[in-house]
Design a protein around this nucleic acid. Sequence first.
DNA 1: CTGAAAGCGCTAACAG
DNA 2: CTGTTAGCGCTTTCAG
Lengths: 404, 404
Amino acid sequence: MVTARKPATGTTGTPTVYDVAERASVSIATVSRVYRSPDAVRAPTREKVLAAARDLGYVPSGSARGLASRTTGILGLCIPDYADPETDAPGDGDENAATLYADHIIRGMERAARSRGFALLVAASLRDDPTSLVATVAGHVDGFAVMSRTVAARELETVSRRMPVVMLAGPPELDHLDNVQVDNRDGQRELTRHLIEEHGLADLAFVGGPADSPDAEARFLGYRDACRDAGLPVPAEPALRGDLTRTAGRDAARVLIDAAASGAVSRAGAASGSAAASGAVPGAASGAASGGGPDPAAGLPDALILANDQMAVGALEEFAAHGVRVPEHIAVTGFDGIPLGAMAQPPLTTVRQPSRRIGEEAVALLVDRIGAPAREPHAVVLPVTLVLRASCGCVEPVPAPRRG
Amino acid sequence: MVTARKPATGTTGTPTVYDVAERASVSIATVSRVYRSPDAVRAPTREKVLAAARDLGYVPSGSARGLASRTTGILGLCIPDYADPETDAPGDGDENAATLYADHIIRGMERAARSRGFALLVAASLRDDPTSLVATVAGHVDGFAVMSRTVAARELETVSRRMPVVMLAGPPELDHLDNVQVDNRDGQRELTRHLIEEHGLADLAFVGGPADSPDAEARFLGYRDACRDAGLPVPAEPALRGDLTRTAGRDAARVLIDAAASGAVSRAGAASGSAAASGAVPGAASGAASGGGPDPAAGLPDALILANDQMAVGALEEFAAHGVRVPEHIAVTGFDGIPLGAMAQPPLTTVRQPSRRIGEEAVALLVDRIGAPAREPHAVVLPVTLVLRASCGCVEPVPAPRRG
DNA sequence: CTGAAAGCGCTAACAG
DNA sequence: CTGTTAGCGCTTTCAG
């Protein structure tokens, strides 16, 4: 006869089920049961085990558990690299706002996950380290969400055959994946239509994001839709492009101001991408929301439509610095609905994205699929909402009464 | 002789080392090596393995790995429950800003962790579900950080004997734990001193947070330090307390306004905690930054010092709504350095916390300790910085030039 | 440089 | 209700 098969860990090392079992004079199976299905163990026995565990400082090993049960109770999230680590609080907290979006998704997922009994594993790609995020995450989770452009499609292709994966806020690169998006195009179309129909603006300039940003491109498309619907010229390219930062918004505004000052030449000509945008209807500027005063607005479009709030806030700042009044001289709009927009001067008209809901939907989709791996891929498109504030010429609505 | 000991997984199930090994005609040990120490395997062999893995869609199991190697490559973070999930974007995005603090810590940890080869497991306590966070997290990580008051001290006590734990932004409840804090007291002292010495203010009112918020309490202590240093009355309790939200800030401002309007009675008397605060030096109000105009300031303190930015922004809003001018009638300050503060009207003077660095330090501490479990506990205190803007009477400094 | 063997700590049928 | 017995998939000496 052999000696004990699984000798208790003795002195060193973290305590295991064996240690607890020995101390409580029960089998390891019972110890396991106490944690997995407490009701399947008689109360006295359970107490004994719990007491032993407490004394020993026992904490079940997630790894062993995961290995044995083939599920980890963890959901993953891959996000793109954001912000330079060295740039902490350079002065105005600009980069803080930049992250809000991903933060909200994280938060939404975290809560939704936890309320369903999952924890959240977050991994961001590192600009300089192309190590596969998927490999890091996939091995530890029961399923995960990926923000668009974070990981290579080929990799997703492979791993998505083995576990639930949902694509976030990006075009369904892999059509067989679940994915949740926001209705960027629709939102921008409605916003633009509002400018055209409610405020009677006709000379619009759109400031886009990088050409490879699906969100920004979808917004541009929405902008074009509105132009088309209104019988306005439909630009093939944004009048300007920026990298979605506040600074880019400032720059865009300055380009416009400079162009306006140097005569009525194609003011969009200074753009990075192709030029020739917004039709030249200089006279239309006088048709703006609330004309009056002298005319620092001469040569400016009726409205500047930026692809996100950050750029819009930057533009607001630049205009203010140059004595251009918003919305009197030019209307300005953003997209996203970040808190900063509400505090801007004037408060920014924008389109609010349900960023937190994106995370929540992702979890719902993931959990669904974990329950039914063969289910058809779902694509959920979250609606956005117009937030009309002063920067487009709308009167700031009275603050809503607190809800009961 | 027996049959194959570890038959390849065959058709079903996710592929394992055995499948890859078989397909590449090598042993499982070699497959393992390819992932753990690629250089220990001849290039041709390595390629063969990698190819097989690719074909199979093989992803190493984090659980199995963790079990076998006793390390998971994951760092954990326990944060307190925040925001009601139902309250998404009720109107002003208030709750968005509310989370910034935890978000920054998450972000800081996430990046720091990843740059050192770790992923981040985030778990928030659920208001209604007291299930042990620690149990969820501890089993899956190599060490973790805990935001103060998130988990019971007893539990930490136990688990910290078995793995690295660092306490965040809270008083070292367990003195043997590593912990990282922010110099709340010092920051508030300096800010207050600035108000007293640079602006000549003497009648100060401090709005604190919940009594069980270590951060808010430390700030109050700093405020008291400054009062004492200046020979001013040293209140035993904050003039008012709030729950650190924007709404609480609004309420605080209103209490002050009402009290001022209803005569010069003890305006702090309406506070929740004990009353009797800031010495009565009503005349001093005229000594404010830029006196002039009529006197809506009558009965108001010279300055309202709020325990955080959110409350301060709320106060700013309320004052504006009642025609009280800041800083002419009353100076207002916050604490934290959230982006909202910079956009407020007037821009908010505050103390900036290096929130992201907290997360970074936490990771550094954790990784250090993982490397040296027996090391002495470290306590790092991060410095804060004064951000002087218009709400205290300082001129808004010109925007710093972009760094080269 | 590669293979064989022995677990890591826990769960999950099965027996009793 | 509780104990036995196999592994889960991978890392790791230790040989070769």
